[in-house]
Every structure is written in structure tokens, then in C-alpha cells.
Design a protein around this nucleic acid. Structure first.
Length: 312
DNA sequence: GTAAACCTGGCA
DNA sequence: TGCCAGGTTTAC
């Protein structure tokens, strides 16, 4: 489930690995991903050198020389694999393969095919439909910008954070983690948050995402770095996929609810409605001000069922 | 604003 | 055999 930290980790790896390499041949599979594979990929990438690798939200942009950019979204299971030498083995679900002039290869593999590969003229990229409507950058977000955006939305704050038009790059895992650290109930409506609540979110967003980037992201089953290694942040997660286990801050059992057809995990005590504070919406969640505690995360052993699900 | 659809591997 | 995981698009 690649979110901003996983995509940024991959961007850095690609930047140090493939920038400067010139494509000898490019191949694509006949299968469609989220959209059909770009026509003319073989011709448009052939004989071009990769000049830069950029990121916007969960999108990667591989800039090739002479005004061609490959826009990439990893979807759920997309990954890049780099081989210094042409590999002898074959792998399933490989949808694009770049062979560089020195014989090294870069593959794009995506089992579930929710990913996206699309070619643009670099100069036209800012008009790309995928990038045009991306929301605020969570790494440099100003609390007042978040507050101004949140007060216009009536959806639950968890859904607000995962809406790419509002905040670019946060997905299901990190939304739960950020709200736990901010001490906010995931079902609280975005428009009901106060300035302090938004300040807490704006503070925790770069903190959680930054920690995850430093640990090369989170791996449960599919995400992997360029050489196939899993990310290292899974053991620092405080609530995600920990239903029934004790909260690291207060010991209460972590709860799981469904929001927008996705699982949300939270601590009913640390993220409880604020005691003594009236909810503006009777029956709805009330807010709690202040983060549970900023103690450093305690590495946890991987849950047995997840260990079984991990591929490598 | 809400929910189905897309897709495959893992698991009960 | 059928359910579940979830990022995004699409339809309602």
C-alpha cells in the first residue's frame, strides 16, 4: 500500500540508481493497468536518458531528455525492480521493462494492476489530470491552510486526510497513525475541528511521514524497495492493524472501524471524545484536544498473521 | 456524500 | 469456494 513515504523512498532510490542512464530498449506488456499502457512507449523512451525523478503526492515522475515524462502511480501493488545485470529469472506481472545501454534493467511489476503508467510531454505535465487537483503537501503544511480546507468539508477527518484533493500523499495506514498522535477521533467531521486540532495534525503529518521515510516506508505484503527489500516502519506503527492490542500510550485496546469501505484503527481512550466538551452534533463523536504523548515508538514484533502474509 | 468496480494473492 | 485487502475512478 504505497503512500507518500514509500513513494519518496522509491524516488530517492531511483534517483541514485537510474538517473543518467540511457534507455537502449523499452518493452511493455499487452495488459492494461488502471488505464491502457501508453502507446508508443517503446519508441518514445528509446535512446533517451533519464534526467530526474520527481514526486507529487503518491505519483512518481521520471523525466527523460527531450521533453518526455513517464508518470507512474504504484496503485496497491506496483513496484520497481532494478537489475544491474539482465536477470536470468522471469517474474510474473511485469508490465514494463527498460533496458539501459550498460545492460542494466528497470522493471515495473504490478500484480493487481491498480497502478498507472502514462507518458506526457514534460512541458505539459502541470496540466496532467492526475496532478492538477492534488491537494496540500503534507510535508510542508501550514496549520492555517489545513484549517481553511478542513472547515469546508463535512466528511470525517480520516476520509479528509486520505482524499488526495485535500492532502496529497496520505493513505489508509498513515491517516490512522497521524490521527492517533494528534489525539483526534477519526470520525470527527473535518469542519468541526478547531485551530488547535488542525495544528496538531499539521505537526504530526511531517513527523510521522518523516519517520516512515527514514525507515524506508511500511511493508505489509506488497510494497518493496528497488532491490525487493521490505520497508522498516511496520514495527513502529501505533494503531494500524493492531485491533485488540494495547495502545502504546495508555494500554486501552485498539479499536477497528470501517470508514469509506476501508479499515480505520484508533485508540478509544487517547482519541476519545473530549470529556466534558459538548459535541456540536448529538450522537456524533466529540473531539479531544492534545496528543496522547510523544514518547518515542517502541519497536514491536510483527504480528504473526502479517508475518505469514509477507512475501519476503 | 456514498458505494461499486477494478484486480490478484493469501487465507479460512 | 469465497472473502478480504485498498487507491482511484466512476456512477448514482
Amino acid at each position: 500500500m504505497p503512500e507518500l513515504p514509500e513513494v519518496e523512498t522509491l524516488r530517492r532510490l531511483l534517483e541514485s540508481t537510474v538517473v543518467g542512464r540511457r534507455v537502449a530498449t523499452a518493452r511493455r506488456s499487452a495488459l492494461s493497468l488502471r488505464r491502457p499502457m501508453p502507446r508508443g512507449l517503446e519508441r518514445r523512451l528509446g535512446a533517451r536518458r533519464i534526467m530526474a525523478v520527481r514526486r507529487a503526492g503518491k505519483y512518481l515522475m521520471l523525466d527523460f531528455e527531450r521533453d518526455v515524462t513517464l508518470l507512474v502511480h504504484l496503485g496497491m501493488t506496483g513496484r520497481f525492480l532494478f537489475f544491474p545485470q539482465p536477470p536470468a529469472r522471469r517474474l510474473p506481472h511485469v508490465h514494463a521493462r527498460l533496458t539501459f545501454e550498460d545492460g542494466s534493467q528497470l522493471w515495473f511489476q504490478d500484480a493487481r494492476r491498480f497502478g498507472l503508467l502514462r507518458l506526457y510531454a514534460t512541458a505539459d505535465l502541470e496540466r496532467a489530470a492526475e496532478l492538477r487537483d492534488l491537494g496540500l503537501d503534507p510535508l510542508g503544511m501550514r496549520p492555517e491552510s489545513l484549517y481553511a480546507s478542513a472547515r469546508k468539508s463535512r466528511v470525517a477527518i480520516k476520509l479528509f486526510l486520505t482524499d488526495q484533493r485535500r492532502v496529497a500523499g496520505v493513505g489508509n495506514i498513515y491517516a490512522s497513525e497521524i490521527l492517533h498522535r494528534a489525539g483526534l477521533h477519526p470520525a470527527a467531521r473535518a469542519c468541526d475541528l478547531g485551530t488547535e486540532d488542525c495544528a496538531a495534525i499539521a505537526r504530526e503529518l511531517p513527523r510521522v511521514l518523516g519517520e516512515a521515510i527514514r525507515n524506508c516506508g511500511t511493508t505489509f505484503s506488497d510494497y518493496a524497495t528497488l532491490g525487493g527489500e521490505p520497508g522498516g516502519y511496520s514495527r513502529y506503527l501505533r494503531v494500524y492493524d493492531r485491533a485488540g492490542q494495547p495502545c502504546r500510550s495508555c494500554g486501552a485496546a485498539i479499536a477497528r472501524i470501517t470508514q469509506g469501505q476501508r479499515s480505520t484503527f484508533y485508540c478509544p481512550r487517547c482519541q476519545a471524545p473530549h470529556a466534558g466538551e459538548e459535541s456540536p452534533h448529538p450522537g456524533g463523536p466529540r473531539l479531544r484536544r492534545g496528543p496522547p504523548d510523544a514518547a518515542p515508538p517502541t519497536p514491536r514484533p510483527r504480528a504473526p498473521e502479517r508475518a505469514r502474509r509477507r512475501r519476503r
